[in-house]
Nucleic acid binder design. Sequence first.
DNA 1: CTCCAAAAACTACTCCAGTTGCGTTAGATC
DNA 2: GATCTAACGCAACTGGAGTAGTTTTTGGAG
Lengths: 195, 195
Amino acid sequence: METSKRPGGRSARVRDAVRQATLAELSERGYQGLTVENVAERSGVHKTTVYRRWGGIEGLISDALELASHEPWPIPDTGSIEGDLRGVVQLVRSGFADPELGPVSSAFVAAAVQDAAAARALHDFFAARHEQSAEVVRRAVARGELPDVVDPSEVIRVAVAPVYYRLFVAHEPVTERDADRAADAALAAARAGVL
Amino acid sequence: METSKRPGGRSARVRDAVRQATLAELSERGYQGLTVENVAERSGVHKTTVYRRWGGIEGLISDALELASHEPWPIPDTGSIEGDLRGVVQLVRSGFADPELGPVSSAFVAAAVQDAAAARALHDFFAARHEQSAEVVRRAVARGELPDVVDPSEVIRVAVAPVYYRLFVAHEPVTERDADRAADAALAAARAGVL
DNA sequence: CTCCAAAAACTACTCCAGTTGCGTTAGATC
DNA sequence: GATCTAACGCAACTGGAGTAGTTTTTGGAG
């Protein structure tokens, strides 16, 4: 939500309380267990207020996502593109495997599949992630490990895509080996000059 | 749903009517617009009957998905692995771009993200698709185009994953060129022996 | 043709997500 | 520190998803 006329007072407190409650509820109950009433009760903010300012569950998700997108994202720097790319993909995998963060991250994906506003928020989120992660590819190009015709963010996309595909489309388990293999495949393609 | 004691009579008619109505509603209104009452009214079957036999929206989706999974899936045979793999990925892309089939396919993905039963149904669906599509890889191995150490269904997964990733996770548009590039990337990885 | 049982139709109900109108509070402005 | 107003709290209401009990239909078996 954008800055209101009274950003420093009660409104800001309400906003923070609701955001925090949303993340907590998401972590504990997951997306399908998330209700406006639970968030309202947990945050101490009245149900009506949540509906008025956030519009509903999708609004809560979008807001929480916007908050999450500002958190820093550690870019691996192992010295080689193999290690860096594997690191990026493993970070994705472990993020969803984490018992606390996993449900929250999954909720964002689930919400975006249904709601247009959440989809836009998630789009922006991933655009930022791609851009940041692409740094490992740009460094590899600078080191001469990859041809300079590669599209850095496309390498990232192809590397992480199989993990998301398994998790949210095919609904298959994802092992660490699967993640490494996905990273290696993207790297092979980049070396061959097709990315 | 499994075969009941009276598969030839009224039960079968009801089942078909509901299935067809579900697909029609899905195509017109999408997943978020799908309600049991609409399906009931459209099919001419009473609301309570739908609830009793299908349990709810998720049951309707799972049933429709099970129906869809039995439909034949055309496997390309262009003579070369490049053409075949590109054909497989383009088939995925065009399926979601189609104004009639797209909403239905998307609904399956959306439902599976939320409901465990739908997730299982979609898992089975994709397992079958992977197995069928892997034929193009096996043929390529037989022709000597690819090393025989490749995991055929893994090549398919890596090839189609970027399309699904763009559509349902990053929510980016997917061009024909994107699809070809994904196929080419998987092929390069397979040739390099990492898949 | 008759009878039986399974499945569907019908009616009426519950429950809860989401809404509305109004009164109250608190932060900003002077 | 008095006032003004945006934002919040509150309680009552609405509507539709989902349920339960009962009656009616229909396909199958003897």
